[in-house]
């Protein structure tokens, strides 16, 4: 585990994350990522068995501790206009976005 996040890989990640970075910010963040990655590489030293379980959370969930599944019932928010009032742009109770990139089919 000695990977480094190269500039090329970094730029790809930035693109996938739907971000844009100024040059100075990009350099700072890439440097920090590689520092953190060096710390993460410490994990390579941990002896692991094939059957060591993956822990998606710490505390085990059992039937005795878990809430029963809710009924699959439609439970609408009582006043949708409150939610719409927080929209950056709204028209006729629709969220409005800029043009969605698309290709016209023949």
């Amino acid at each position: 585990m000695t990977d480094e996040i190269t500039r090329e890989l970094f730029d790809k990640l930035v693109d996938l994350a739907a971000l844009q970075l100024e040059e100075e910010e990009a350099e700072y963040i890439r440097r920090q990522l590689n520092s953190q990655l060096t710390a993460i590489h410490e994990l390579a030293a941990v002896p692991l068995d094939e059957d060591t379980p993956l822990a998606a959370h710490g505390v085990p969930y059992t039937l005795n501790t878990s809430a029963p599944a809710r009924q699959d019932e439609h439970n609408p928010f009582p006043r949708p206009e409150i939610i719409l009032s927080g929209a950056p742009e709204e028209e006729d109770r629709y969220f409005v976005t800029p043009e969605i990139p698309h290709e016209d089919l023949d």
Binding site: F10, L19, Q20, Y28
Partner: peptide, 21 residues
């Protein structure tokens, strides 16, 4: 891209990128 670039500070950006990597 512009919204997230302007809206997030350096720490969230860093953490998003590490998580994706």
């Amino acid at each position: 891209r512009r919204t997230r670039a302007e809206g997030f500070g350096a720490q969230p950006k860093l953490r998003i990128l590490m998580g994706m990597y």
